[in-house]
């Protein structure tokens, strides 16, 4: 795995420092032009959008996944199996098909739009598709199982007697949940953050299909540089920057985890 991961990553980093040739290939010699091109004035807005969509997606997923994980873990055994099955059932349908399904739903003639108009929450001219909120919605939908599963796994190992102990010592239900349950499933929460945040930062297909020109994310720019501009070194530089951005939170979590375990 190290080989399959490290070698391509190293190649991407190396190509970042190559000049491009007019035929879409990679020129000879070394240059810093590509790095300079990262200063393109369009990028800060796109990077900012990528970050906020990713973080909001992560936050939404956690807020939804924690109660889900809690209830699945507390459900009786046969219910638990069914609920877990329901959680992973979307994976049986192709990712792409599910996104197109959302496109159909959110379409001006789609059921969601019609329903909202019918109950008076939207008027005919409201555009649901091709905006950042649509990207956000579909991303939360897509990534939610990746948050539920690790949180459930941690909650399942959690000793629910501890919540009774906290209640017995005078804590309200909410306080017991916050001060005893959440710290108890900390590992699951961290895993869920990584499992949602990292794919979010590199998400390409969802903004491409349900997003519009003003909801582009960084990965769309990389694709554009590669396939439209045929400027591979430039795309590589962007990719390298993204890789570094993704590695940062991962390393922070790993270091944090190691420090805590060292303290045990």
């Amino acid at each position: 795995m190290t080989l399959l991961f490290l070698v391509p990553t190293a190649l991407v980093f190396a190509i970042s420092f190559k000049p491009s040739d007019p035929w879409g290939g990679i020129g000879a010699g070394w240059t810093l032009d590509t790095i300079r091109s990262l200063g393109n004035p369009n990028y800060p807005a796109i990077i900012w959008r990528t970050l906020w969509i990713s973080f909001v997606t992560t936050a939404c997923c956690l807020v939804l996944a924690v109660p889900c994980g809690y209830y699945i873990a507390r459900a009786p055994q046969r219910w638990r199996r069914l609920l877990l099955l329901l959680t992973v059932i979307p994976f049986w349908t192709s990712f792409l098909i599910r996104i197109f399904a959302w496109k159909v739903l959110l379409h001006p003639e789609g059921h969601v739009k019609r329903g909202l108009v019918a109950v008076g929450l939207a008027d005919e001219s409201t555009m649901l598709l091709y905006r950042s909120e649509a990207v956000l919605l579909v991303m939360v939908y897509t990534l939610l199982p990746f948050a539920i599963l690790p949180i459930y796994a941690a909650a399942e190992k959690f000793d629910f007697k501890l919540l009774e102990a906290a209640r017995d010592l005078g804590a309200t239900q909410w306080r017991a949940f916050r001060q005893i349950f959440l710290p108890g499933i900390q590992r699951g929460l961290l895993t869920a953050v990584l499992m949602v945040l990292i794919p979010s930062l590199g998400m390409y297909i969802i903004p491409d299909i349900v997003g519009g020109p003003r909801s582009e994310m960084i990965a769309n720019k990389i694709a554009q540089r590669t396939f439209v501009d045929r400027n591979v070194p430039h795309a590589s530089a962007l990719s390298a920057a993204l890789t570094l951005a993704v590695m940062a939170p991962m390393l922070a979590v790993l270091l944090g985890r190691r420090r805590r375990e060292g303290g045990r």
């Binding site: 000793d159 501890l162 009774e164 102990a165 906290a166 209640r167 017995d168 010592l169 804590a171 900390q186």
Partner: peptide, 20 residues
């Protein structure tokens, strides 16, 4: 009365100490 409002405290079978 909910458990947190009662002036009784429990020693649980496996102690239920908070691990963190």
């Amino acid at each position: 009365l909910p458990p947190n409002k009662r002036k009784v405290n429990t020693i649980f079978q496996n102690y239920a100490l908070f691990p963190h």
